[in-house]
Every structure is written in C-alpha cells, then in structure tokens.
Design a protein around this nucleic acid. Structure first.
Length: 573
RNA sequence: CGGGGUAUAGCGCAGUGGCUAGCGUACCUGCUUUGGGAGCAGGGGGUCGAAGGUUCAAAUCCUUCUACCCCGACCA
C-alpha cells in the first residue's frame, strides 16, 4: 500500500480522553476513531490488524474441526425468554423494538440463537459432535465504556458453541478448544495465562479465562508460585496463611466504641489484632437479607456469595434494612440476634476461631468474647472471601501471587443449561431422546488488538508482533534530492509485493524526521530506509524492536526480508 | 443510578458583557530547507454543543436539554 493512497493520519498530540496507552496509541497511530461512547470506527490500518487476528483465529478454529457460520445481530426476545435471560441478563442487554413494537435484542452472545439453530437441524447422534463458530459484532450496553476498544459497547468477538452426545464428548470438545486457544494466543505473539474463572451470566459448570498479562489489565489473577494453579480472583480459593489462635472461650461482653465504625478503628480502639474481628456484612439478594461473617482483614467476594446463595441480584443492604435487622446504625452489626435474615453465612477464615470481636447490634457498641456455636450459629460455612497475595495455593499449599491481566478469551462447560431450557435433543443409538451437552468459547478479537499494544509498545509508539502487524515492512525514501532513492524504494516495493510481503511505502512528500516518527508510531516490525546509502547500492534495515540498524545490499533484499518475516512469525508460535 | 467536570477550527487549548473570536498544531499555495515531528511569507476552515431567556450588546450571565469525560455505586 502507498501511504498517499490510504486513509492514514497520525496525531502528534494525545487525545485528552484516552487514558491507557493502547487507547492513546490506537488513536494517534490512526487505527481507530471514536464515533460515540463505546463505538469506534476502524480506519484502514486498524482494520488490517483486526483482519490479521480474525485470520489466525479462523485458521486455528478450522484446524480444530469447528465450522464457521453467521447469525444475525438482532435476535427475537422469544428466544431469550425461553432461557430466562431476557430478564436475567440485565441492563447490559441492548433491547430494541421494531416498527410493530416487537422486542429484539442486539446480541451480546449467541447461546440461544445457536441452540435454536441446532435443535432445528440435529435429530440424530450421527450428526454429533459439532462445533459451530462465527466472527461477528457483539453489543453490550456497558455501564461505563472506557479504554477505547478494550471495553466498548460494540466489539468484535469470535464465539463458538460445541454440541456433544455426552459429558465425555463435551469434555473432549472443551479440552480441544482449550488447546486451540493456547495456539491462537501464541500465534498472536501474546504473553498470556489460562486461569480458572467464574462463569457469570453465561452459566455452566466450569470455565477458564485466557488473560493477556499487563499491569493495566482490569482483571486480577491469583497464581501459585510453585504449581500451575491460576485463577481469576473472582474464583480463586486462597487458603488462609495465618491460623486462628486457640484459647479458652471468654464471656461475651458489650463494650462502648463510640464513633468507631470501620474494622481498623475498632481494632485500634480495643487494641486487638484486626484478624480477631468478625466483620458482619448484610446483603440484600432477590428480596431477602443475608448476613456474611468474615474475618476483619478480609473482603467479601460478592461473586462467591452470589453463587453460594444462588442469587441473581445482589447488593449491600441499605441503612434502613440494616437498622431493621440489627437494631443499630451502619457499622455496628454483629452475627447474633439478627431479625429477618434468610441465612447467616460464615467465611471459613473464621472456622474454629474463638473470642471474636464483632458489632454489638447497638449504636456505638461492639461485643468481645463472641464465640461460634454459643453466641451465634451460621447456616453455612464456606469460602466467601477475596483471595490475597500470600494466601496458600489450594492444590499445593505454596503462596499465591496476584498479577493483572486483560481477558481475551473465555471457554465454558455449559452442560445442559441451554439444551434443556430450549429442548435441543437428539436420538441416541437406542432411539432414546437425549439433551445435547454444550460448551461455548469466546475470543475478544478487537480486544486482542488493544491487549497486544499494552504488551508491545515503547515511548515512540506501537511495536506490533509480526503476526498482528498491519504491514510487515515499511519503506521510507528519505533523500528527495536523489531520485535514485525514490526509484530504488519503488522497485523494492514492487518486488516485495510480488513476493507476497505486506509492504507500506511512505511515498508522502514529507521530511525524513516525520517519516521516521510516524513509522515508529504505527509500529511496523521492519523498516527499510532509502537514503544516503543508495549511492553504494545499500539499504538501511531496522527492526522496530531493536535499537540498531544495519546496512544491507540492494541485491537479495527481498529474500532477506522474507527470511526475517519467517523468523519473526515462528518466534511467536 | 449518584457526584464532579467539560463542550470554542481535524487535534490540543486560550478567551468572565463591548470592534471582524484567538493561539499552537494539522491543512492549502509559494520560496528556502531536507536522516529523527524545519524556516519564512501568504491562505482556507467556526451557526463558540442545542433551545429558550436577560441585555442597547451574549462564546461570556440565567434556565432547560443533549453529548462526552472522570470518580463513585456503600467492605460496617
């Protein structure tokens, strides 16, 4: 491509609204342009990157035996009502009406649609297993779109759905996709990690996320320093490292703690370690109140709680609800004598603990010597806390560390959730009707572009990994006085194109400095400069990821570039 | 949804009631320059987010609306 023939405008200044580096660079390098909140135009350069990612995903999915289809973006409300997600998906589901006032959703994911497609076609076990996928635009009405295409309202996703005869087949399909995802992200040149995850609104029994490691990632990952255990902190089960002290139970006593609301204030005031506090939190879920008792230094993991009580909506109780249940204002709740509480759940950080300090259920009062079983009895004991660095690995007992990541892929074991709700069945060898066992597998195509930049950039701009680069080589003729430089650049450009190398010729009438700055900004992996050295039939070759350039002879330049590209491609794989 | 902020040229910004609304950058023309975001000269580009109001006079004051950005959405 000739620079002068495409729409490629770079910005010297960073747009005020872009917060993270990938967003800033994508706008400055002319990859994307915002249309409205969470909606972006992909300009030619950015679209080429999307195409590169899609192609890698497509090749690997096809190699894994999946079959590509395409489903409409609009889907009728009836299908969503069949599974109950029309009401359960919440405000994130983009709803629209047609001229006849019929309800539709802009697809955020397509389980209902694909299940409908399959139930209409599949009748026999002979048609299974099958794995269908599409690459398409998805819509989610995010509360707060931000970070450019990283969290947009409209984005490109690859979504695949597997249908199997039994659990064993579904398990195999899941494993196959897990492996396929590993090769996809490797081929994209990303540093990533697969982690156990909560399955959220999609549902199902088990899921893994693929995280691109980056400090700006929105997700936190707990991983073991020794074994291979890694999980999203939403899911991670860190065993508590410091055990609770054993001693003889004391009398329960109420003590005045005027104005001391937070655990830090209370621990300081009563001179007890913060781990001795039993923090009592009240939650309101699906019309009922729940109490959660957790060690003072720990935080409630609302996703674990939501799963423990099978809630669809969960919020902290408001001050009136707290007053009613405890008889006290916010800040003085204790686990005993609660009114109107559906369940009292105890985080297992406090299992076996004695002589705790909790709120006294009276204003400005806390209780000491609170003991499990005598002063209160939890309905359930389970893990309800957010894992922390230093917690012990659930599989090998070594300490966990916390790092951050960008979720680029998610694979789910769905089981029968959708096939039962929507009656997607087939006849087995015995002529007996069976439900399809499903799995689903997503990849954020547009998010990969942003994630790759988060991982691959420097102070001058993007440094694309070769497999995702919009062009492999950029050619800069920089000696306008010397027609030979331009001629040679044109000739090499033609030869590269003939050889199948994706080349961008900067044929603009610009000064050398501008061309160098722009080439660095847009991050093409290889740069050829046609300047002074053309007089000796030499061309300057520089890799974007290296500091030093080298002079290479004009003769054999194309072979040299092809070899370099091949090397850089396989380096990622 | 709550709070805060912003809206003036493609981008970044100035302009607190008074002449034709400005600066940097980008864009166009010419000359010079030419290996890391050149210099000089000339030029084009704005219903100052929208509507209404106050005033002799409004980008500027008031009201309403819209869009966008940030923070928060209760850890007792």
């Amino acid at each position: 491509m000739r620079w002068s023939k495409t729409l490629l405008e770079t910005l010297k200044e960073t747009p005020a609204e872009a917060e993270i580096v990938s967003h800033q660079l994508m706008v400055r390098a002319g990859l994307i342009r915002k249309l409205a909140a969470g909606l972006y135009n992909y300009l030619p350069l950015g679209f080429r990157v999307i195409r590169k990612i899609e192609q890698i995903v497509r090749e690997e999915m096809d190699a894994a035996g999946a079959v590509e289809v395409q489903m409409p973006i609009l889907s009728p409300a009836e299908l969503w009502q069949e599974t109950g997600r029309w009401s359960k998906y919440g405000a994130e589901l983009f709803r629209v009406k047609d001229r006849h006032e019929r309800d539709f959703a802009l697809g955020p994911t397509h389980e209902e649609i694909i299940t409908d497609m399959v139930r209409k076609s599949v009748r026999s076990y002979r048609q299974l297993p099958i794995n269908l996928y599409q690459m398409h635009t998805k819509f989610r009405d995010e509360i707060r779109p931000r970070f450019g295409v990283m969290r947009a309202r409209e984005f490109i996703m690859k979504d695949a759905y597997s249908f199997d005869r039994d659990d064993k087949g579904a398990e195999d399909a899941y494993k196959k996709m897990f492996e396929t995802y590993q090769s996809i992200f490797k081929r994209c040149g990303l540093r990533f990690k697969a982690v156990e995850a909560d399955s959220g609104a999609i549902g199902g029994s088990f899921s893994s996320e693929f995280m691109v490691l980056a400090d700006t990632g929105e997700e936190a990952i707990a991983s073991c320093t020794k074994c291979s255990y890694a999980a999203n902190v939403e899911k991670a089960q860190g065993r508590i490292a410091s055990p609770n002290i054993q001693e003889a139970p004391q009398e329960k006593k109420l003590v005045a703690t005027p104005g001391k609301h937070t655990v830090e204030e209370v621990a300081e005031f009563l001179q007890v370690p913060i781990t001795r506090l039993a923090k009592t939190m009240l939650y309101f879920a699906d019309g009922k109140l729940y109490a959660v008792v957790i060690r003072g230094d720990r935080e409630v993991n609302e996703i674990k709680l939501k799963n423990a009580i099978a809630a669809t909506e969960l919020v902290l109780a408001n001050p009136e609800q707290i007053k009613q249940a405890t008889g006290a204002p916010v800040g003085f709740a204790g686990p005993f004598d609660l009114k109107g509480i559906e369940k009292v759940l105890l985080d297992d950080s406090l299992e076996g603990a004695v002589n705790l300090v909790s709120g006294g259920n009276q204003a400005d009062t806390h209780a000491t010597g609170v003991n499990l079983g005598r002063d209160f009895t939890p309905t359930e004991v389970c893990d309800l806390r957010v894992a922390q660095a230093g917690d012990l690995c659930p599989s090998c007992g070594e300490p966990l560390t916390i790092e951050r990541g960008i979720e680029v892929g998610h694979v789910f074991k769905l089981g029968l959730k959708y096939s039962q709700a929507m009656k997607a069945t087939f006849l087995d060898e015995a002529g007996k009707e069976q439900y399809c066992v499903m799995g689903c597998y997503g990849i954020g195509v547009s998010r990969i572009a942003a994630a790759a930049i988060e991982q691959n950039h420097d102070e001058f701009g993007i440094c694309w990994p070769l497999p995702l680069a919009p062009y492999q080589v950029v050619l800069l003729p920089v000696a306008p006085k010397d027609p030979k430089a331009r001629e040679m650049a044109e000739a090499v450009y033609a030869e590269l194109q003939a050889a199948g190398v994706e080349a961008l010729l900067d044929d603009r009438d610009e000064r050398a400095g501008i061309k160098f700055k722009d080439a660095d900004l847009i991050g093409i992996p290889l740069r050829l400069t046609f300047g002074k050295s053309v007089a000796e039939n030499k061309i300057e070759l520089k890799r974007r990821d290296q500091k030093e350039a080298e002079l290479v002879p004009r003769l054999g330049i194309v072979a040299r570039i092809k070899m370099l590209c091949a090397d850089m491609l396989s380096a990622g794989a």
